[in-house]
Simulated scan of single mutants.
Amino acid sequence: AGPHVRGADTTRALDDLARAARARMGGTVIGVTGSVGKTSAKEALFAALDRGMPGAVHHSIKSYNNHTGVPLSLARMPRDARAAVLEMGMNHPGELAALTRLVRPHIAMITAIAPAHTEFFADESAIADAKGEIFQGLEPGGTAIVPFDSPHRDRLIAAARPHAGHIVTFGLDDGADVRAIEAMRLPTGASFVTARLGQRELSFTLAQPGMHWVSNALAVLAAVEAAGGDLGLAGLALAEMGGLPGRGARFATALAGGEALVIDESYNANPASMRATLAVLGEERGRRLAVLGEMRELGEDSAAYHAGLVAPIEAARVELALLVGEAMTPLARALEGRTQVVHVPDTAAALARLPALIAPGDAVLVKGSNGVGLGRLVAGLRNGM
């Protein structure tokens, strides 16, 4: 065996390393959570801060957001980091309360509340309460960043009030502290956004398409301002940010006679993120195909959540839906007579069927829960099937 330290309890030892790394770091720590958008917002916030402090911003890699990933992210944080952006996730009550006390953020952001992991929660309000635990670890005088447009806004503000020195809201609706007063889609699929932050306005191009990304960008700007960062440089970073693999990356796949556009959202899915990305697909030209994997951990309402995707599928004018997984059965039935449907049991079957379904000029969205394994299908499309 190589050099090592032997401990009686490896979990406790990892947490102790995390606490030590956090204690020695004198910069600004930002915690990010939410039912949807937390990894994307974390990456966008890192890019926005790093543009103004190149090489001095630490952040969680991938989705290192659980009881192992968070302390690992803290333990590898450089002593001289000027800022750190740390993602925190949960699927049970009490998990975020423990993680946020390790992270001790100066700024705590919630991107959105939506049905996710609902088999572990009584209702969406309970999910909001669990996400609101992130504010319990705020450093004295810290800032809580809350989604203004959320139906759970007041619940989240109430959760933040005992712990936060400042509460900042972001959103598309009038009344938000940081809000979009203009969001215009450009021919490239990007958006031109004018945001108002108090008495100031910032106009910038947002590379990522979709109104859900406009909301993410507003949250990022709120956090950059709270951290004392450069808003102008943050806007430049948002203009240059490409899609993340599994979370909006776009590429052309070669086909006989041409190519098709692929929108890779294969990393995860819940009802809210399905609606948001289907809306993005609906803005694309050409024939629209949706390869949708089942959404997991939705509990006893799973059938209703799946069948409820009919409306966003129709609004996006999807001409063909390739549905993957047994839990997609209610949606397949609901789409009968409305949209062409191919329903298969797993990703292997989807891989076998897709080459005969896709054609040059198509726009193809691929999205499903990570456990479905649609990343393998995306890899096949990257390699030309």
Rank of each mutant, 00 (worst) to 15 (best):
E265F: 08
I358H: 10
A223G: 13
T194E: 05
A327Q: 08
A379C: 08
I167W: 00
L236N: 12
G52D: 03
V146Q: 10
L335E: 07
R51Y: 02
A356D: 15
G142V: 06
E284P: 00
G371L: 06
F192K: 15
A356H: 13
I110Y: 04
D16G: 13
R22Y: 02
A180T: 06
A307R: 06
R76N: 09
L261I: 07
L238W: 02
A315P: 03
P355G: 05
G248R: 03
V291M: 01
V193G: 12
A237Q: 04
D174T: 11
A356V: 12
L320N: 12
F148C: 08
P54I: 01
A159Q: 08
A83K: 04
A126S: 15
A176R: 10
T143K: 06
L381I: 05
L236M: 14
H59A: 15
G69C: 08
E284C: 13
T329I: 08
V32C: 09
A180L: 06
L221I: 12
V36G: 08
T118E: 12
R153C: 04
M274K: 13
E284Q: 14
D173R: 15
G371P: 04
P209K: 02
I113Y: 04
G137L: 06
E326G: 07
A352V: 13
N66Q: 09
H306Q: 08
A334Q: 01
A332P: 06
A334I: 00
G94W: 02
G243V: 03
M211S: 14
T10G: 09
L102E: 02
H106S: 04
T347G: 09
V324W: 00
T10V: 14
F121N: 09
G286N: 03
S203L: 00
V214P: 05
I107L: 04
A260M: 07
I107K: 04
E300Q: 13
A23P: 07
I110G: 10
V146W: 08
G248I: 00
A234K: 02
V70Y: 09
A350N: 13
G380I: 08
E124G: 12
V32P: 03
H59P: 03
A356C: 10
V378W: 05
L233F: 01
T33S: 06
D80C: 05
L261E: 11
G384Y: 04
I263R: 13
R317Y: 08
G282C: 09
A97I: 01
R82A: 14
E139Q: 10
M77Y: 00
A254V: 15
P71R: 03
N268A: 05
I110M: 05
D50Q: 09
T339Q: 06
A126L: 05
G246L: 00
P245S: 07
A98D: 05
M109Y: 02
S150Y: 06
F148R: 12
A290Y: 04
A158R: 14
R376A: 15
L238A: 07
A8M: 10
L255P: 03
A321H: 12
G337L: 02
D50A: 13
A327V: 00
E259F: 00
G132Y: 01
